[in-house]
Nucleic acid binder design. Sequence first.
DNA 1: TGCTGTGTGTACCGATTGGTACAGGGTAGG
DNA 2: CCTACCCTGTACCAATCGGTACACACAGCA
Lengths: 205, 205
Amino acid sequence: MARSVADRRDAIPVLAELFREYGFAGASLSEITKRTGLGKGSLYHLFPDGKEEMARAVLEDVAGWFETNVFMPLREGDDPTAGIDAMFRAVIDFFHSGRRVCLVGTFALDDTRERFAIEVQSYFTTWIRVLSAALKRSGFNSRAARETAEDVVAGIQGALVLARSQDDPAVFMRAMKRLHERTRVVRRDTQKEGGIRRRGTVGKT
Amino acid sequence: MARSVADRRDAIPVLAELFREYGFAGASLSEITKRTGLGKGSLYHLFPDGKEEMARAVLEDVAGWFETNVFMPLREGDDPTAGIDAMFRAVIDFFHSGRRVCLVGTFALDDTRERFAIEVQSYFTTWIRVLSAALKRSGFNSRAARETAEDVVAGIQGALVLARSQDDPAVFMRAMKRLHERTRVVRRDTQKEGGIRRRGTVGKT
DNA sequence: TGCTGTGTGTACCGATTGGTACAGGGTAGG
DNA sequence: CCTACCCTGTACCAATCGGTACACACAGCA
């Protein structure tokens, strides 16, 4: 029954959620059929290579989302701080204020990493690279920009782990606020020569 | 053969490494027998409740290690900065300079968390609490101490994820250096009233 | 109204999962 | 030397794993 022509695009968000909850190996076909509502027949028709292809499709989807919602704003020409603001908004949205964990992070930690090494690696490297460039344009010197970008991306991952370990999204939100602050405050030791000293404070509420 | 009376204490480090690599669910009995050199008989004699008891023993062991090598130095009376230095040394040692991931972190991310919720939670809360107290004694005001402690613990977790994702321990070491620095530099907005301004720099090499 | 081909539910596959039962080996105490 | 018990290798278990094969249902076209 159900001649609604199953679509990969409908399945991918569900798959993403499953991989987040159980990890790649832990997300069983039986759970996948249950949650997606698709039988094995449909599943293997949409993803002939099975779980690996599903995960790859999910990773591609996540990469696309970050490209349009995080990286593009960061690359936007004239106002780098607006781009950084947009990044934090997008991140908070994407991770459901800390209730959701990072799929790529979970893949990175166990033996799943080897299977998706390049995807996992590039996810973080491009994020750091693009953020670093934005920080530079906003007044940070090269070294401080690079370091702050690394700290921010790592800080987000760590905050997700912490929030989940405490089962308390507030931990994540607090961390986000502080990280955001760090991208705005330019100090003597982080500014370019002749750069401005302070960019204002964060959090308008 | 082998009447060497198998000991839990010998098995625990091996089990810890396996859980780190594969996660709780991913660490299979067959792999465990292979790496520990213990047959199922011995394994279930030492850990009657199976994998769950193994993991619990490992968590207990980790907690004990942190208690003596991280928390105790942090609590040490007179010189809080020395305690913090010791903490960073211990952390770098424990995580093999970023080549090893955090067992508790991997447990926190997937559905394993529910099984060991209290252990996972207390691991991070006591760490933050003890570090926060040390920072306070070293000149941070209450709020800054608490925030910095959270940032440091989250930063360590994030750095582990990042280092593993890049397969590059240097990422972890850079992050440790910067986090260490943050625990030493007391600024106008983080110090207690009448406190000292700066505690020196980090990294004697 | 037939035919055709695309999707899909289902039965089935060998392999592996965590766990149990138990016989027997080895050592320690007598 | 014998006995008793602790320990452990091994056979076995049902359940589940990811994946394959295939028959059939249904929509589109003639």
